[in-house]
Simulated assay, not measured.
Amino acid sequence: MTLLAVERIKLFTTRSPWWCALVTLVLTIGFAALIVGNSNAEVPATVASTQFGYSFGMAVIMVLAALSVTTEYRFGTIRTTFQAVPNRTAALLAKTGVVATLALVIGELSAFGSWAVGRALKPGANLALTSGADWINVAGVGVIYALAAVIAVAVGILIRHSAGAIALLMIYSLAVESLVRLIPSIGDDIYKWMPFNVADKFLTGNGASNAGRAAGDGAPMSTAVLGQGWALAYFAGFALVLLVLSLSSARRRDA
C-alpha cells in the first residue's frame, strides 16, 4: 500500500496527468456531441456512435502512461525510487497499477460522459443501455483504456525515452495495424490477430450496439475472429506479456 501511495503522489503532483485527462474528456465527449448532434432519421444516433472518439482518447491515455515512466528516467528520479525500493518489480508494478487505475477511471468518465451528452442532445433517439452489447460498448471503454495504459507503461520501461516511446505507441496503434492489411495475400489474416483490432472486437462484438448506422460511426468494427470474452482475454494477455518483458528488462539494466 505504501508503494501505491508513493506512486499516486508522484503521478498527481505533475501536470501531465491532469492535462491528459482533460484532453481525453474533451476529445471523446466533443466527438460524441459532433456525431450525435449531426445524426438524423437517415443516419440515426446509436449507443456506438456516442463512442466515436474513444480511439482518440486512448491515444492520449497511452501518452499519459508512457510519460509516467519515461519522465522518471529523463530526470533521474527512477534511481532514487530503486534505491528506496530495491525490488524493482514491486516498484514498477505499483506504478503500473496506479496508472492503469487512473486510465480506467478516465475511460469510464469519458465513455459515460459521451453517452450522457448523446442522450441530452437527442432525447428521442434509441440510446438507452438495454442490452449487454450496449453496456460493453460503453463500460468496456475504461477496461480497454486500462490495458492500453499497461502496454504504454511497458513500452516506456523498455525504451525509457519519452519521444521514442510515444512515437512508437502512436505509429503502431494509429498506422501500423492498418497498414498490415496491405501485405499481399496474408495481410487480412494477420490483421485479424493484431491486438488493438482484437480490442475493438471486445467493444463492438457483432455490431449490435450500432444497429441502423454505418459501422464506422462507432468504435471500429473489428475483423477479429474471437468472441468478445476471448478478445478481452487476448488483449489482456498481450499487455501482460509486454509488461513481463519490460520488468525483466528493468531488472537487468542499469537505471
Rank of each mutant, 00 (worst) to 15 (best):
M1Q: 08
L3N: 08
L4F: 03
L11F: 06
S16P: 01
W19R: 07
W19M: 15
L25R: 10
L25H: 07
L25Y: 12
T28K: 04
I29G: 00
N40Q: 14
A45I: 01
A45V: 03
A45W: 03
A48M: 09
Q51L: 14
Q51C: 07
Q51Y: 04
Q51D: 09
F52Q: 09
S55R: 13
G57Y: 01
A59Y: 04
V63M: 13
A66K: 00
V69M: 03
T70M: 06
Y73R: 01
F75K: 03
G76V: 06
T77L: 11
R79Y: 11
T80P: 00
T81S: 13
Q83W: 10
P86L: 03
R88E: 04
R88M: 09
R88S: 05
R88T: 04
A91R: 09
G97D: 10
T101K: 07
G107N: 02
L109Q: 11
A111C: 13
G113P: 07
S114R: 02
A116L: 13
V117S: 10
G118N: 04
A120P: 08
L121C: 03
K122D: 14
K122G: 04
G124M: 11
A125N: 10
A128W: 05
L129N: 08
L129G: 06
T130L: 11
D134Q: 05
D134N: 14
I136Y: 02
V138S: 06
V138M: 04
I144M: 06
A146F: 00
A148W: 02
A148Y: 06
A149R: 00
I159E: 00
H161E: 09
G164E: 10
L168C: 11
L174P: 01
A175Q: 10
A175G: 05
E177T: 09
L179T: 04
R181I: 11
R181V: 01
I183V: 15
Y191C: 10
N197M: 10
A199H: 12
A199R: 02
K201A: 12
F202Y: 14
F202L: 15
L203R: 00
G207S: 04
G207K: 05
S209E: 11
S209C: 08
N210T: 10
A211W: 01
G212L: 08
G212W: 11
R213C: 05
G218F: 09
T223P: 02
G227P: 03
G229A: 11
A231W: 03
A231L: 06
A231C: 13
L232C: 12
L232A: 15
A239W: 11
A239E: 01
L240P: 02
L242T: 07
L247H: 13
S248M: 12
S248D: 05
R251Y: 03
R252V: 12
R253Q: 14
D254N: 15
